[in-house]
Nucleic acid binder design. Structure first.
Lengths: 355, 355
DNA sequence: TTGTAAGCGTTATCAA
DNA sequence: TTGATAACGCTTACAA
């Protein structure tokens, strides 16, 4: 007798023999218990337990041309934003038979395309990808993926399939308008990396200031350099060196905002009186900072879990009614933008919809 | 002719026909080009290109009882520490044919055990797991995994197979000793989550203070609550309420340290003169804070890439000479522990070895 | 160096 | 409702 290649693991045939049925009956009992008589079902379940049988995913995938793998492609592993999204995805999939295949595109559309091709070659059950700025070829791959596709983080008219996110432009507009309402007049912009989502936040900033008649391109400080707290310090220092009368800054994320705060502290600039600071994402630290930092709460975990929810529904053949879901954002007004003497702005909860 | 189940993708047989050879020759040319004559190899490569052939991973896994999947199990997706480790792992695997199967145990040994069982059922090429505190059954599973296993983050006498990390006890000892040398005498401890690694840092703290004759159990503030910046504020406030004369704190991670700093700022306590603050991990923000925060640099990215390196070597049959690799840590002394009047402590680079 | 034959463990298909 | 049989696409074992 030939030695088993699979290291002695029991196969479906072993279970079948023990339960006194044929392999295919075991297969059915496992996948769709309803289709097997209660009698046999019980015998099979017992055999499965007794043998510690675990189906071989590869054999299953080969025979059925289907897998339980959900491919996920995000641009960064270290960005807290995506860590939270991922957590939502993993939690949503934890009690299911699905597994996650994770790809890190490092903010490179080319790398994303490559990952997409690799993932697709494994016939995933569904695909979750960040953003809407895929290459033409990626878009084509996604359209012919043959599985549900959920684009996350953003909102757009033309989803490949489904979409969960919020409008970065609207969110940028929201914060900036808040700064205007809080009494600031010479509002700067601090931006890093300047990926598509960051660009759209900048658009929102610009629109809000134009509406208020306060837009000054010289107050926009943006760099392709990846974001960091240190960079936040540097950018604010640069901005103040060029435009010393700047009285507030919208930072495209919380790291930059924290850096801006530290820079103000080191330069003995009063926050919020001399300079107002607003961030983006509302990481946990923002509320704990001193002074507490204003930010925009983005429902990252929810985006992940909603994406999974939609993907699973679609896998099960129940496409959700709404193909594009806006999870909105909430402005969290805190001390860093509550200027003394200006009208008190209460901590409001204002969900923003796409523009 | 029967319709293809695989959605029309070319198979190895298609390539073989086009190249005018047999399937097995194509298979060999793909896996081990050396074993096929240059002549045929070229024909095959051309056919592969022409057909856009991509091997089916599942068929390959089924036939060979092997996969290219490296299983990775970490306790948290949102902890920056593991995000960096992951980056090291993904980068190390990026140019290879390997894929990552990522599991999040959420700091639960039981969940870890479950993930391990799931991963193992897919016959991974290697396994990378965080920590050394597996359950007995997990340990058993790992020992019989039939593939290289790398335990990361810590150091221990008895690795399952291979190990890359540093001694948390030694690192805790290092920071605490630094605080003593910097002139602090009533040094507190702020700890959250209190997972095994945190516990060992506490041990190092305790040992260092005992050696200095300064240990006071009442200054240890620890909670099982997950870490956060807000928690850092709360813990320091508690500690100071109980022991108002505390003159320094060792925080088991940088989030707590940042919270401690904010708490001092809000209570108008001078850092480092009234209170010294030291953190752990040396996240990027520590150097940017005001005052800059002392911390212990842990080579997280390196741990990830070294683990991959060792795993790949072992997969290739070249077990590394050293099965246990100590990557060490470096104390980063900054303003938050440079007390006025005390001996100036230069920013030193002192790799710490395991105890 | 190349090829033939026989699976790998599961599911699709069709028949009973 | 259950089963026999033939794939699924690839690799191992052995032969030429």
């Amino acid at each position: 007798m030939r030695r088993r290649r699979n290291g002695g693991r029991p196969t479906i045939a072993d279970v079948a023999k023990r339960a006194g049925v044929s392999s295919i009956t075991v297969s059915r009992a496992l996948r769709d218990p309803e289709r097997v008589s209660p009698q046999l079902r019980q015998q099979i379940e017992e055999a499965v337990r007794a043998l510690d049988y675990v189906p071989d995913q590869h054999a299953r995938a080969l025979a059925s041309a289907r897998t339980d793998v959900v491919g996920v492609i995000i641009p960064s592993l270290t960005n807290n934003v995506f860590a939270d999204v991922l957590r939502g995805i993993y939690d949503g999939l934890a009690q299911t038979s699905h597994q996650v295949q994770l790809g890190n595109s490092r903010y490179s559309p080319i790398e994303e395309e490559r990952l997409l091709a690799t993932f697709l070659s494994q016939r995933p059950a569904a695909l979750i990808v960040a953003g809407i700025d895929q290459t033409a070829r990626s878009r084509e791959l996604l359209e012919n993926a043959g599985c549900p596709v959920v684009q996350i983080m953003e909102l757009d008219e033309g989803p490949v399939d489904m979409m969960v996110g919020f409008s970065h432009r609207a969110a940028g507009h929201l914060v900036t308008s808040h700064l205007v309402e809080a009494g600031y007049r010479r509002i700067g912009f601090l931006g890093a990396r300047m990926d598509p989502r960051t660009q759209r936040r900048l658009e929102g900033y610009r629109a809000a200031l134009m509406e208020a008649g306060l837009y000054d391109p010289d107050r926009v400080t943006a760099t392709p350099t990846p974001s960091s707290v240190t960079l936040g310090r540097d950018l604010l220092r640069d901005l103040l060196a060029r435009m010393p009368d700047t009285d507030a800054v919208f930072c495209i994320n919380d790291d930059l905002a924290l850096g801006a705060l530290f820079e103000c502290q080191s330069a003995a600039l009063a926050v919020p009186d001399t300079i107002g600071i607003a961030g983006f994402n509302d990481l946990e630290m923002m509320a704990a900072a001193w002074p507490a930092l204003t930010s925009v709460r983005t429902p990252r975990y929810e985006i992940g879990s909603r994406a999974v929810q939609m993907a699973r529904a679609a896998i099960a053949g129940r496409r959700p009614a709404e193909r594009v879901v806006d999870v909105g954002v909430e402005l969290q007004v805190r001390a860093s933008t509550m200027r003394r003497g200006s009208a008190q702005v209460p901590s409001q909860k204002a969900p923003v919809r796409a523009i």
